[in-house]
Design a protein around this nucleic acid. Structure first.
Lengths: 168, 168
DNA sequence: GAGTGATATGTAAGTCTTTACATGTCAAGC
DNA sequence: GCTTGACATGTAAAGACTTACATATCACTC
């Protein structure tokens, strides 16, 4: 088992949670409610599903209209998913453009630094509004709460930093 | 100008902040105080510096002992850096193993879910301690504050979630 | 002077991710 | 019947990143 393979886990997790689905469905979910958790486009998802089928983690359960292929998780896939949840020590995201801009703020004139922080603030604000509009059902409740907590913390940091920069 | 190239910006930002440095020095900084902002190993940094020199963003200012090469940022590099800071709209990190585990918590038994959240909590706690031990000087103050805010928010989420899961 | 560990730089292979390209189906409205 | 837009799947090339491999210098200790 490789170190990363979180795309696999995300796909297995979705299939286990919502039941059989097509690559297209899965891509829509990544683009929508799973947006703040894990992102992947269809060009990454389709080949990965083929590989996962070859590895026995999913099967093509049915083929529908328009070439639609419905994938279902296998018992081996469930096992892989559970093993990862039980054993994998998650790492914090190690690359953040926002943190990088925050780190480099000292290079800017005051007015420009304020503009940078205001842009970051807007990003966090938009994220917060997106998550607040989401209202998750029985799934994703905890990830939703985490996303909200992090967005609020980022927003608070932006406001504190604007105060610190002496924004009038 | 490509969309990503944040490694370039991070390198330019460091060179602009601390002055001329070798790839080795820069790798050490990424591994140390810049850890929570941007990460990169020497195998990524060395070839990138060569490309940046070819693009005129940095120059080899001197060669020291042990094949040590000292890179300095050029005026063109400064321009590139400033343009990015002024114009680039940063995106939120879109992939988080922690958020993925949080999203999939509903698949676990209560005891195992608690174990997962406790592992996440330990991660945030460790991050918080690392940042609290850091005491940044004149540089990186804002990124440090942001890192602390996010780590504290994550920790708080973990505690709230443990309560929610009815941890005894 | 031999060994060890920190310093210092690099290449190669493989994986992960994005962007651009390419194809075809089906439903609804005109 | 034609157009448009959502549905649906894929490939190819390029870029970003990790892991493993490879080499050599220098300072210090034994």
């Amino acid at each position: 088992m490789l170190a990363a393979m979180s795309l696999r886990i995300a796909l297995l997790g979705l299939l286990s949670t919502v039941g059989p689905a097509s690559g297209y469905d899965l891509a829509k979910t990544f683009d929508g409610s799973l947006n703040h958790v894990w992102q992947a486009g269809h060009t990454q998802i389709y080949p990965e599903l083929v590989k996962m089928a070859a590895d026995g983690l999913v099967t093509v359960e049915a083929e529908g209209a328009r070439g639609r292929k419905i994938y279902a998780i296998t018992p081996e896939g469930e096992r892989e998913l559970r093993t990862w949840m039980e054993e994998h020590h998650p790492v914090l995201p190690a690359r953040s453009e926002i943190a990088l801009q925050a780190f480099l703020l000292h290079l800017m004139e005051r007015d420009q630094a304020i503009a940078v922080v205001e842009r970051i603030r807007a990003r966090y604000q938009a994220q917060l509004e997106k998550l607040e509009a989401l209202r998750p059902g029985r799934f994703g409740r905890h990830a939703h709460a985490l996303g909200l907590a992090l967005a609020r913390a980022g927003l608070q940091w932006a406001d504190d930093t604007l105060t610190d920069l002496g924004k009038t």
